[in-house]
Amino acid sequence: VTLFVASYDYEARTEDDLSFHKGEKFQILNSSEGDWWEARSLTTGETGYIPSNYVAPV
Rank of each mutant, 00 (worst) to 15 (best):
V1M: 13
V1I: 12
T2G: 11
T2Y: 12
T2R: 12
T2S: 10
L3W: 11
L3R: 05
L3F: 12
L3N: 05
F4V: 10
F4N: 01
F4M: 09
F4D: 00
F4S: 02
F4Y: 15
F4H: 05
V5S: 05
V5I: 12
V5D: 01
V5C: 08
V5G: 03
A6F: 02
A6T: 03
A6H: 00
A6N: 00
A6P: 01
S7F: 14
S7W: 14
S7Q: 15
S7R: 14
S7H: 13
S7D: 08
Y8W: 12
Y8E: 10
Y8M: 13
Y8N: 08
D9M: 05
D9F: 05
D9A: 08
D9Q: 05
D9N: 08
Y10T: 00
Y10Q: 00
Y10S: 01
Y10F: 09
Y10I: 02
E11F: 10
E11Q: 13
A12W: 03
A12S: 10
A12V: 00
A12D: 01
A12Q: 06
R13L: 11
R13T: 13
R13H: 09
R13G: 08
R13W: 07
R13P: 07
T14Q: 11
T14S: 14
E15W: 09
E15D: 12
E15H: 11
E15S: 13
E15Q: 12
E15L: 11
D16R: 15
D16M: 14
D16K: 15
D16Q: 14
D16T: 14
D17Q: 15
D17T: 15
D17M: 14
D17N: 11
D17V: 15
D17F: 15
D17I: 12
D17E: 15
L18A: 01
L18G: 01
L18T: 02
S19E: 03
S19V: 02
S19A: 06
S19M: 03
S19Q: 04
S19G: 07
F20L: 05
F20N: 00
F20W: 01
H21T: 12
H21E: 08
H21N: 10
H21D: 06
H21Q: 13
K22I: 09
K22L: 06
K22H: 05
G23Y: 05
G23A: 03
G23D: 05
G23P: 01
E24N: 05
E24D: 14
E24P: 00
E24S: 04
K25Q: 12
K25M: 15
F26R: 00
F26C: 04
F26I: 04
F26A: 00
F26G: 00
F26V: 03
Q27S: 07
Q27V: 15
Q27D: 06
Q27M: 13
I28E: 01
I28A: 02
L29I: 11
L29T: 06
L29S: 04
L29F: 07
N30F: 07
N30A: 08
N30I: 07
N30M: 07
N30Q: 08
S31K: 13
S31T: 12
S31I: 11
S32N: 11
S32R: 10
S32V: 10
S32Y: 09
S32T: 12
S32D: 11
E33F: 12
E33G: 14
E33I: 11
E33T: 12
E33K: 14
E33L: 14
E33Y: 11
G34M: 10
G34Q: 12
G34V: 11
G34W: 09
G34R: 12
G34I: 10
G34Y: 09
G34N: 11
D35M: 11
D35I: 10
D35G: 11
D35S: 09
W36G: 02
W36Q: 06
W36M: 12
W36N: 05
W36E: 04
W37D: 01
E38V: 15
E38T: 11
E38G: 04
E38I: 15
E38R: 12
E38Y: 15
E38D: 04
A39I: 04
A39H: 01
A39S: 02
A39V: 13
R40E: 05
R40I: 11
S41E: 02
S41N: 12
S41R: 12
S41K: 12
S41P: 01
S41C: 06
L42S: 04
L42N: 03
T43L: 13
T43C: 13
T43N: 08
T44C: 03
T44W: 03
T44A: 02
T44F: 03
T44D: 03
T44H: 04
T44M: 02
T44V: 02
G45Y: 06
G45H: 06
G45F: 07
E46I: 10
E46V: 09
E46Y: 10
E46A: 12
E46H: 11
E46T: 07
E46Q: 14
T47K: 09
T47D: 04
T47E: 08
T47V: 14
T47I: 14
G48C: 04
G48Y: 04
G48Q: 01
G48E: 01
G48H: 03
G48D: 01
Y49E: 02
Y49L: 14
I50K: 00
I50A: 01
I50E: 00
I50W: 01
I50L: 06
P51V: 02
P51Q: 05
P51Y: 08
P51T: 01
P51G: 03
P51F: 07
P51K: 06
S52I: 07
S52Y: 08
S52D: 02
S52F: 07
S52W: 09
S52H: 07
S52T: 06
S52C: 13
N53F: 10
N53H: 12
N53G: 11
N53D: 09
N53R: 13
Y54A: 14
Y54V: 05
V55W: 03
V55L: 12
V55C: 05
V55T: 04
V55Q: 03
V55S: 03
V55Y: 03
A56L: 13
A56E: 14
A56P: 03
A56Y: 14
A56K: 14
A56N: 10
A56R: 14
A56T: 14
A56C: 14
A56F: 13
P57Q: 08
P57G: 05
P57F: 07
P57V: 08
P57N: 05
P57L: 09
V58P: 05
V58L: 13
V58S: 08
